[in-house]
Amino acid sequence: MSAAVTDTPAFRPGPRAWAAMVAAEARMVARDTAGLVVPIGLPMLFLVMNGLGSSTEPLPGAGGMSAFDIYVLPLILVIGVATIGVVNMPSFLSYYRKSGVLRRLGVTPASPVMILVAQLVVSVLQTALGVALAVGVAVLGFGANLPDRWGAAIGVFALAAAAMYAVGLLVASIAPSPNAAVAIGLGTFFVLGAVGGMFGPATSLPDGVARVGELLPFGAAVIALGTTWLGEAPELRHLLALAAAIVVSGLLAARLFRWQ
């Protein structure tokens, strides 16, 4: 009998386990009806409200793009990824910690890190779905134009998404309970959004607030993304602001996250 123990391989859960974990998180998200309303519904609401109100006439000197293309569509995409990253993901992670799901996984060969990664993967999939839906409706319903340099737009959007997920991880790591995670997540989302131009053009904000807002992840993402719609290269300071959000939030989250 004793030989069997030293023979026991130090087995690591393999691709099957990772796939099963991602599938589990996907089911959790898909079955959480309330959680789906915000990331899918909110961008749609903004899209329709703005689509009905804003002009799709090409702006002078904007390469054929309208105000809807360069202001509204980027804003809607950022709202989508911000709600998923900053509001939804932390509420799942916080619930897993509070209810002991992470603790339970901690006594299996699976690492709780797997659940974190799986939740991120599902967030990315969910984001991709939300983006496809919003862009589809915008193009088909409101005659929106897509950027010519779509590679740059995707790159900027990926950076923005990473920044939102990093902020979300930070929210998850400081929230003491699932309710607090939702409250802190929503609060963070609305503050970042408000100073980043979610409720109207940043030009109508006080000067100082607007300047800070455009260097926080939401504002930086909207401006950088809008610039790529114009066919221009985003300003370096906005890209650096997003990168800084990833590094700072990520490091803080890694320091503060508790498994139980």
Binding site: A24, R27, M28, R31, S99, G100, V101, R104
Partner: peptide
């Protein structure tokens, strides 16, 4: 194998 006291699982699975 471990069965923990008061430990929940993925609620929707």
């Amino acid at each position: 194998g471990v069965q923990l006291q008061e430990s929940e699982l993925h609620a929707a699975l």
